[in-house]
């Protein structure tokens, strides 16, 4: 247990240091989450098309202006629609998408243990 706590502490500490150093990582993360609209199933990070290059520039500019990751997604979604982001935004229509897997998991488990209990008695 002590070992575990020690490690946890170690991690939290080091992580913060990592965060400030990797600006490049954030860029890449955003590129990977954007669909290259003129390609077949490729992200902006993977593509080298004109479209991908332009989007990369725009993202870099926005990051320089101090925009957050989500603000950049919102901007691009407002221009190109939700199709452009690979991580569907949390909103009313996508709620079912995000929630239903866990609903299935949990309801199944509850049902399972309920039936088992019942048989036990």
């Amino acid at each position: 247990m002590k070992n575990f706590l020690l490690q946890l502490f170690f991690l939290l500490f080091v992580n913060n240091a990592l965060l400030c150093m990797e600006k490049n990582d954030q860029e890449l993360k955003i590129f990977k989450n954007l669909r290259c609209l003129i390609c077949q199933g490729q992200s902006v990070a993977d593509s080298n098309s004109d479209f991908a290059q332009t989007i990369k520039l725009v993202v870099k500019d926005k990051l320089k202006d101090g925009k957050s990751e989500n603000e950049i997604y919102d901007f691009l979604v407002s221009k190109y629609g939700e199709w452009i982001v690979y991580k569907p935004q949390m909103n009313k229509t996508n709620f079912i998408l995000w929630a239903s897997p866990y609903l299935i998991l949990i309801s199944g488990l509850i049902l399972f243990f309920y039936l088992m209990r019942k048989r036990h008695k």
Binding site: I38, F51, Q53, T54
Partner: peptide, 13 residues
Amino acid sequence: KDGTTSVNFGVFG
């Protein structure tokens, strides 16, 4: 020149 303004118009090709 760099295509960034066109993004504001939702241009993709």
